[in-house]
Design a protein around this nucleic acid. Structure first.
Lengths: 248, 248
DNA sequence: CAGTGGTCTAGACCACTGT
DNA sequence: CAGTGGTCTAGACCACTGA
């Protein structure tokens, strides 16, 4: 019948908008530059602010934009390559890693997913070490490291000691054990309120959740749940460090 | 002065809603079960539909829900663990990997990011092999594998051959080379229209983008850009395969 | 065809930032 | 304080699915 239907699929406005904005970012804006505010952009493109925001959200998700309440929308720098898989397999807190211990608490309530990985009973006491990872002065990740108290019996730092001191004590006890190996999973999540604050983001911000299992003496001895800012980070794995140079 | 200001931070409605729904999913719903439709849920919680949708979007991002237009919202099964780092370092298409070659084309226009990794000149001809990864009958990833024509001079499959045949031919030529190593990056992205169709998602859906660099004879010989559904996949890395069993 | 989720509008108010 | 992005509303219409 030869129906001349060129556009069977009407492209959503926000999708088209995203493309237009993305091209504009490439050609007309420099990193760090401030975009016009949302109300003006929406007016300029002849759409409702909600629609404009849908496009901006996608661009932020892809790491092209950075939005801060009360400030404005800026063009984001290229994502930072963050090495996740050190060539040498070492315990967390070994010299050379760029994590900062923050504090440590001992508790008997841990997420079910962690209990499963640690193969502990639901009521067992566990140390939780909080750590923070900073690259180029920017916080890129927050971490909760779970270590069953039974695995580090030598760790008897009193609660009166400084928070950071207790954290270091747990790590030092860990280092006395032989590390057999480790494995990891990566998945998408949304930042818990606590992590969000540490990462300087709003709650619910998209994050890459890296779960690392440390195996010692044929047993899972520690589990680290690391929460990376998905907008600013590109996780790098593998033997070669040459890959870290591809920023540009 | 003792101002009794318990809630300095008014929790956004959608955030609270998400928590409530999340708990309900744990206790009152089985995997695969259909939730009430959005209009009814919004009415039941006394919020606008847009607000309710904001909560559902987050839950879908976290892999708790699955929404399909024209059908409804269902409770999603736990994420599938997808092994990304085979113990043996092998070329793509080696026996044992669960990727299906789809087709192959030869072109001289590739994304700038890929050109940079391959260290090719902007006009150099490159094979693009499209592959698809299926797990449990579900498409979980789409891939574009870039191989400079110069790297596989023996590959002279005519365009008249079947699409899949040409794809296999490129892979077979690759296998003749010695593989020195590989490295990867993982970052968050949004599905291009083409990938979205292959993954049975809408354009813009969140995806985990895995970029693999294959090194041969001290040179980057191939680059694979694999796009995994972020809602249903948990990427697994590392030596132990025991981690794949943690689904529950 | 009826019912679902997806897109879009035009407003309002709030929380936060910097000056 | 003015200006920004974040939240929320109450509607409307569209695209898709399955009976």
């Amino acid at each position: 019948m030869g129906t001349t239907q060129l556009e069977t699929v009407p492209e959503p406005k926000y999708w088209h908008l995203k493309t237009v904005l993305s091209d504009a970012l490439d050609s007309e804006f420099a990193v760090g530059e401030i975009l016009p505010n949302e109300r003006e952009l929406a007016a300029r493109f002849g759409v409702a602010r909600a629609t404009l925001r849908q496009a901006l959200e996608q661009l932020e998700l892809e790491g092209r934009l950075q939005r801060r309440r009360g400030v404005g929308t800026t063009v984001a720098p290229p994502r930072v390559g963050v090495p996740v898989d050190p060539a040498r397999h070492t315990w967390p807190g070994a010299p050379g890693d760029d994590w900062q211990p923050v504090d440590a608490v001992e508790t008997d309530t841990v997420p079910a997913a962690v209990t499963r990985l640690l193969e502990t009973a639901p009521g067992d006491r566990v140390h939780i070490v909080r750590r923070s990872r900073v690259t180029n002065g920017q916080p890129v990740a927050a971490e909760l490291l779970y270590v069953p108290t039974a695995a580090v019996p030598g760790c008897v730092e009193p609660a009166s000691a400084g928070a950071q001191t207790r954290a270091r004590a747990v790590l030092q006890e860990l280092h006395k054990l032989a590390l057999d190996g480790q494995d990891r999973t990566v998945e998408l999540g949304s930042a818990r309120a606590e992590d969000a604050k540490q990462l300087d983001r709003l709650p619910g911000a998209p994050v890459l959740v890296v779960t690392t299992r440390y195996v010692s003496a044929g047993r899972t001895t520690a589990v680290a749940v690391s929460t990376y800012r998905a907008d600013t980070c590109r996780l790098t794995f593998g033997e070669s460090d040459a890959v870290a140079v591809l920023a540009g």
